[in-house]
Design a protein around this nucleic acid. Structure first.
Lengths: 189, 189
DNA sequence: CATATCCTTTGATATAGATCAAATTCGACT
DNA sequence: AGTCGAATTTGATCTATATCAAAGGATATG
């Protein structure tokens, strides 16, 4: 199964030789965990990167005691505590499973070793980061100047089935509006 | 002078051998252009990446006829039409110099060739993209749920001298508020 | 140096969406 | 199926910020 998942990952980004894949596999953990499991706690040092094979996860932070969703990750997507992973700072985010999930856990150190050792692996990481960067760019555009409804419509375009996986409150905070407002928008459809 | 600039760029991201630098230089244009010059027009295909050596630039798009700033770039920073450059789509952005500037112009094709040929260059591009990704991540956080004043304060923290280079209207649109609101916030200081 | 244009400030008003509060529905567990 | 707690909806109000409008200031141009 791990081989199948890795094949899927590499097919999306770049090809990797068997040698690289074997070395990579040696440090991958495959986890099967329940909805609600916290993968990362705010304030903790974390060097882990996750790949959701089945299920979904969210990253969020607290502002005035309220959870604000920062990042959702569904099947075949990565998720990590961005500032923790890339900058080595204590994590500003919690990461929590929003459904029962099967996921892979990678480790920054090993990823960096592989990136330094193999050009192809470096390309793979570049491609993965580029994808994340482009997603963020899109979010900035619609957070900057758009109404609550425009934001919601945009999100549905990106993730048509998000409502099956993520609660209304989390969706609302992700697009920067309150849950009451989102509820009213839904009611009008 | 070009050598000096390249030394500066590489010092920020990764070391590159002389061989690589020479090959890279063969396709770099150095430009000295006036404030107001348009580097990229919306709708155009563009495969150019710019590095501001002196001066500053902005990327923006039009919404309901109004310009909305998407990205500022100051000395020693990169700028490009993100979707145009990374996805090969027609550009969604204009890029325009906000001051008289000296800049370098790179070309996606050549950058990709170098990235494929040299592992070190690939690492260099990965680092550059990672930096852009982290900047976007920060912007998302403060655009998501913060008051006009918080956004402005955050921007000043990131770019303390931005007011010397960028007009009030552009700054306002960048942080997702109107210029009148920004003017009033300033008046209260 | 006069005029035109752009940029910023100030004022008055309107409104989208927040906040507070309560009712209703949903889902999980016994 | 029945109960409890969580999630969602609905309602009433409030407020930050948008919008509209006009007046100053600053900067560039002939």
């Amino acid at each position: 199964m791990l081989d199948k998942i890795i094949a899927k990952i590499t097919s999306e980004y770049t090809t990797l030789s068997n040698e690289i894949i074997e070395e990579w596999k040696s440090d991958i953990l495959m986890l099967e965990l329940e909805k609600g499991t916290q993968l990362v706690r705010e304030g903790s040092y974390t060097n882990k990167l996750f790949y959701i094979y089945k299920g979904s996860a969210k990253a969020y932070h607290l502002k005035n005691g309220k959870a604000i969703a920062d990042w959702f990750s569904f099947e075949h997507e990565f998720i990590c505590a961005i500032t923790g992973y890339f900058l080595g700072h204590p994590s500003e985010h919690y990461i929590e499973l929003t459904e029962d999930s099967i996921l892979l856990e990678f480790n920054r150190k090993h990823i960096n070793i592989l990136s330094n050792k193999y050009h192809d692996f470096e390309r793979f990481t570049r491609n993965a980061i580029t994808k994340i960067m482009l997603q963020l760019q899109k979010r900035v555009v619609y957070l900057q100047f758009s109404t609550a409804k425009e934001r919601y419509d945009f999100l549905l375009q990106e993730y048509p089935k998000i409502e099956l996986h993520i609660s209304l409150g989390d969706i609302a905070s992700y697009i920067g509006i309150t849950q009451e407002t989102l509820s009213r928008i839904r009611a009008q459809k």
